[in-house]
Write a protein that binds this DNA or RNA. Structure first.
Lengths: 339, 339
DNA sequence: TTGTAGGCGTTATCAA
DNA sequence: TTGATAACGCCTACAA
């Protein structure tokens, strides 16, 4: 593998001059520049990135922590993050935490060992006090996650309000026994969602009974299981809010198979507006997050913090969401009949 | 940031000894080991990865090139790849090519600049002659892609045979005007699929007419468009093979909306057995690839090649697939009626 | 069992 | 406008 030294020798110049050419710095005669470029081509020279990193103390790499890429929401998120990062000349390494605290901490080590210049946390299962020390090693930005602290920049929608809106919508559609299927990981955003959901219920003299609260519901399979549970133990349920379109799809699928009518017998709300929610029969009411905007702002903020090592005041960016109403909750146009 | 030198000073020992402790090498008294560990803890010392990389000439990083992570098949693939790589102590950087030749080549530069130890290509749009030179810079493995060459290890299923089986299934279900919607990127595997598809047709005295061949069909939206096209221009079509479940889902969705019955009016076959194909109404017949096995073998082979710098004979691993028959092609149990 | 010293490939500083 | 030289932080012969 050719090094800068080899190029210098072949061109009959010094490493310094070659380095200048590589980095487009001034003070090199056009003539020598050409000579050097020729030498580089002849040797097939490419700068060694490890050496550059060591010298410059920067890696041009960002770690993205998320639960799992198979969740389409995170797939979409990483698609945008990667693309945006690439625009800024950064690469992205994917770190799947699978909602495990220890994995989250393991991956944060990347920051300490200087393998990455910054970290995006789209997974947050640890307490803040366990994360906070890592800030000494480099910038961290929360994406789609948030907390009370002021120590870090966060980009997200108002999950509390979104869940409130969804619950309100179910209530307005006539639902009176509304279940709540949550992602289960005890994150701040899932707590916020629950608060919003309960607020809406309370304002209408309802409440979330323990039996209608189902936790650890993450994917289509869990959705199916959830329906089975409800069918057997809570047959009077007439509406359900879920933390993801996949769960909602699982419920719709299982319910339909069992002869329940959606939304007449059970109205269902998802989250994230994945393609899946549109394709299901019936199509699923859901909440759309502006993923691309969130991703874009996240990268922008993080890169900014990486570059301005110092101050960089932390901020909070809250983006608007949209409740997309579809058939799965359209109870008003259908006549309720006994099951 | 503390360096190995700082630790050495604080412990009153040499860099070498500290290095030995860091790397669990023998020949260090227990007593000094303890002293050094204390010093490391006190200083919050962590080895600098750039320096290690430069010194060891290895990065413990693998690049995965794929079209886009939002395609659930690739989401699944990267989930498995990342996990497996992590088991071997490697990290994965995601490189989305969006089927662009230049992006593919750009990312291959990572190998040249020694930013990664090896590359997994799950996206392959360039000609082999343009890829081949990069082999000088490090190992490359093809995952879910393949070609004629013997220069590189490939892990995949037999796409030709899979498409053959799918086409045969459609024929057996009574389809006589079968359309073909292809991913469009002119890759070797898409060519293989088409050959297999056409073989089956030919064996039954049929052929793929130009009007029934639709290209550049990648996602749900494209599937919908494809249906619109067929409806208007090829209304006698009675079966369709697609390169992905998403396309198939788009077709089923659009067809149903237009009042076509699946499979009576149009039988549909997808590819990849994504959750989506099961959830659609009707559920979609599809081909399942053993993603996890493919991912697992890919990492294993690549890591092996990284470690045994030299020889490492290239191989080809062909995994079995499965045609999963579902409602979307179940024509025999339903009576065909005029549309 | 421990330490010395050189070098991995770059880039920044300073002198020429 | 160019070049010599010293880091960046780590590992590893080799010597002691």
């Amino acid at each position: 593998m050719a090094t800068i030294e080899d190029v210098a020798k072949l061109a009959g110049l010094s490493r310094t001059t070659v380095s200048r050419v590589i980095n487009n710095q001034p003070y090199v005669t056009e003539e020598k520049k050409i000579k050097i470029n020729e030498a580089m081509k002849e040797l097939g020279y490419v700068p060694n990135s490890s050496a550059r990193r060591l010298r410059s103390q920067r890696t041009e790499t960002i770690a993205v922590l998320l639960p799992r890429v198979t969740n389409p929401f995170f797939g979409q998120l990483i698609e945008s993050l990667e693309q945006k990062a690439s625009d800024y000349g950064y690469q992205v390494i994917v770190c799947q935490t699978h909602d495990k605290k220890y994995k989250e901490l393991d991956y944060l080590q990347l920051l300490k060992t200087k393998q990455v210049d910054g970290v995006i946390m789209a997974s947050l299962t640890n307490e803040w006090m366990d994360i906070e020390p890592f800030l000494d090693s480099g910038p961290i930005v929360l994406c789609n996650e948030y907390m009370e602290t002021q120590d870090v920049t966060m980009i997200h929608i108002d999950h509390k309000q979104a869940a409130y809106d969804a619950a309100l919508h179910l209530i307005e559609q006539g639902c009176r026994r509304i279940a709540y299927a949550s992602g289960g990981r005890e994150t701040y955003i899932s707590k916020q969602r629950k608060i919003g959901f309960c607020d809406a219920l309370r304002e209408h003299n309802m409440w979330l009974s323990k039996e209608l609260e189902i936790n650890e519901v993450l994917d289509v399979g869990d959705g199916q299981t959830t329906f089975q549970y409800l069918k057997v133990h809570q047959p009077e349920v007439d509406g359900i809010f879920t933390g993801s379109d996949e769960v909602a799809a699982g419920i719709v699928y299982a319910a339909s198979k069992e002869g329940w009518r959606i939304p007449e017998d059970l109205a269902v709300v998802g989250f994230d507006n994945q393609m899946l929610s549109l394709l299901m029969v019936p199509a699923i009411t859901t909440i759309e997050q502006p993923v691309e905007q969130i991703a874009s702002k996240t990268i922008q903020v993080l890169v900014d913090q990486i570059k301005n090592k110092l101050s960089a005041p932390t901020q909070r960016f809250v983006y608007p969401y949209e409740l997309i109403k579809r058939k799965s909750t359209d109870c008003n146009t259908v006549k309720k009949t006994a099951r």
